[in-house]
């Protein structure tokens, strides 16, 4: 396929967004009955659902840590989430992303409050349209909050990309495929810490710094929406 025009003559992106504009973001918590906490998050066409179980008994026993909970995290894409069917077996990419998402959440969860237990985080990508790891991180963070697990802060994920030489916020699949760089960022806005950071592509030093600034701005907005989503459910419960 020919490379599409990513930045149009009017300076807008292929889907009409401004460079610093997010896709429409929707989220809901407490969507699953069985799990202790759950959330569904959509960034435009990207749809991700996350569930949290625990803290619960660690099995097998030899994995127990005496001074903290262990976190297990699985990022997984459904076979129908992509244009061509994705094999449900975990790919090397999914194994790596499970690790970076787990490490991002280890930075905020108070694991030391639940020694000898396990907190399980399951992320299923239902539809992939770019930014699945960052939407997954946002969903996982919401699901942890919904499960009532104490955290230092919420984490919002968003990717910054470089397309046709322009830094853009929240890239979709087309921009990821044909752009020059994809930089996923996980940001805990309340404590001002970057908990996930990767770069897949080529950037100058100034672009990296500018990109992180842009990602933080986007993440701050998502963070606000996350809080509103949680307030909506829990304040209502308190008032009734």
């Amino acid at each position: 396929m020919e490379k599409p025009v990513l930045i149009r003559e009017d300076g807008l992106r292929h889907d009409g967004r401004k460079p610093g504009e997010l896709r429409p973001i929707r989220m809901e918590v407490g969507v699953l009955k069985n799990s202790d906490g759950s959330a569904i998050v959509e960034y435009g066409g990207t749809k991700v659902i996350a569930a949290v179980y625990g803290p619960r008994e660690t099995y097998p026993k030899h994995l127990i840590l005496p001074d903290r909970a262990i976190i297990r995290c699985r990022y997984h894409m459904s076979p129908f989430s992509t244009s061509e069917r994705k094999s449900p077996a975990p790919s090397r990419r999914e194994i790596e992303l499970s690790k970076v998402i787990r490490e991002a959440l280890e930075a905020v969860v108070f694991t030391e409050l639940f020694p000898r237990t396990t907190i399980d985080i399951f992320i299923e990508v239902l539809q992939a349209d770019g930014g699945t790891r960052t939407a997954g991180l946002t969903a996982a963070s919401l699901a942890l909050a919904d499960a009532g697990i104490p955290m230092r802060d919420l984490v919002a994920g968003v990717a910054v990309g470089k397309v046709d030489g322009v830094l853009v916020l929240d890239i979709d699949e087309v921009e990821d495929e044909y752009g020059e760089a994809d930089m996923p960022v996980g940001y805990a806005a309340g404590i001002d810490e970057i908990v996930l950071l990767q770069l897949n592509g080529v950037m100058t030093k100034d672009e990296v710094l500018e990109g992180i600034k842009l990602a933080k701005k986007g993440a701050e907005h998502i963070y606000k929406v996350m809080k509103e989503t949680l307030y909506k459910k829990y304040l209502k419960a308190l008032e009734s």
Partner: peptide, 16 residues
């Protein structure tokens, strides 16, 4: 001198 990859690892966050 271009940055062609980044990867943060480990279980703590970092400041700007």
């Amino acid at each position: 001198g271009r940055i062609v990859g980044l990867q943060k690892t480990g279980m703590k966050g970092i400041k700007q």
